[in-house]
């Protein structure tokens, strides 16, 4: 559905993006991640034809954005970072303008606009002036203009930014619903969003694509292992010896004792994605040291993101 080939954009005095190369199949929903200023918005603006690339090519369903921009743009619905709405117009007036601009035949316009507005929860608000709408409704209206012409490819630039938690959930579920019938490229810096709605992730850093893969595969391939935390009833030295004897265990760190039930606490790092919980159970049971608690913490998308973008922990903490 979308092919981005060796795409580069150089600004006068700023870095843009450098040799971005990826493609998207029909029906995919792809999360586009990267720290602020990494080049997400630039890439999206290039794909939608808002900016012209310095080098490279964009094909939308096989149509070149450079050679046939009008035909390529017809296939795209785009929600920029700031919803592109005119505060002076009414919701209906705005959608009518978009329908004309998007060449929806006059006879179909009313039905199409009604359909989209109903889907996005605008019943009873059609005549309301956009100036009076909340940020959440403006964002929805931005989505409405992006889908009214029924595009095959949706480009959404941070669709949940500036929304309150309730609105974020609503917009996310809306995107999930839309993804059933469209190909979606979604930029965000909310990693939770990607793990919950996207089936593939692109990570961009410093204008370059540093990772492209399925969300779960990404976490596996970039993981150095996962951790198991244990509370075992038994002497620390014996627990340490028994656990260390298991082949898949990379390292064990004793973390003191729980006063309440006299259990030793151990944090165990495991060699790349081997699940050792069963082995731990049998080994400690055989040694006569019962496990009172066992929990596993796997690597998160945040960890992968931090590793690939080299972000500092402070930046990481600011990520939702």
């Amino acid at each position: 559905m979308l092919e981005v080939k060796q795409l580069s954009k150089t600004y006068d005095n700023m870095r843009g993006v450098n040799q971005i190369d990826f493609s998207m199949n029909r029906g995919e929903i792809v999360g586009f991640l990267g720290p602020n200023g990494a080049g997400k918005t630039t890439t999206m603006r290039l794909i939608t034809g808002y900016l012209y690339p310095t080098k490279g090519e964009i094909l939308v369903d096989g149509i070149s954005m450079t050679n046939l921009p009008r035909a390529a743009r017809r296939k795209i619905g785009y929600l920029p970072q700031t919803p592109p709405v005119y505060p002076e117009l009414s919701v209906w007036g705005y959608m009518k303008f978009i329908a004309d601009l998007r060449e929806i035949p006059r006879k179909q316009q009313k039905e199409r606009i009604e359909q989209v507005l109903t889907r996005l929860g605008f019943e009873g608000r059609e005549q309301q002036v956009i100036r009076g709408l909340s940020q959440g409704f403006r964002q929805r209206l931005g989505l409405a203009q992006a889908i009214v012409h029924d595009p095959e490819l949706l480009i959404l630039d941070e669709p949940t930014s500036g929304l309150d938690p309730k609105q974020i959930i609503e917009v996310r579920s809306l995107i999930s619903e839309l993804s059933k019938e469209r190909t979606i490229l979604l930029s965000t810096h909310i990693l939770q969003e990607v793990s919950s709605i996207c089936n593939r992730v692109l990570i961009i850093n410093d204008g370059k694509l540093v990772m492209d893969g399925k969300t779960d595969e990404l976490m596996h391939s970039n993981s150095e292992g996962f951790e198991v935390t244990l509370a075992v009833k038994g002497p620390e030295s014996e627990v340490l010896r028994t656990v260390n004897a298991i082949e898949s265990v990379k390292s064990v760190q004793m973390a003191g004792r729980q006063a309440s039930d006299e259990a030793s606490l151990a944090r165990i790092k495991v060699k790349a994605f081997r699940d050792v919980r069963e082995q731990l159970f049998y080994a400690l049971a055989e040694a006569g040291y019962p496990i009172l608690e066992m929990s596993r913490s796997s690597v998160s998308l945040e960890d992968v993101f931090m590793k690939l973008t080299g972000s500092s922990s402070e930046e990481g903490e600011s990520l939702e």
Binding site: G49, Y50, P80, Q81, P84, Y86, L101, E103
Partner: peptide
Amino acid sequence: RQGTDELLFTSPAN
């Protein structure tokens, strides 16, 4: 200023 140029310039209108 309000970013609606992105809407116009990415529409089929030249």
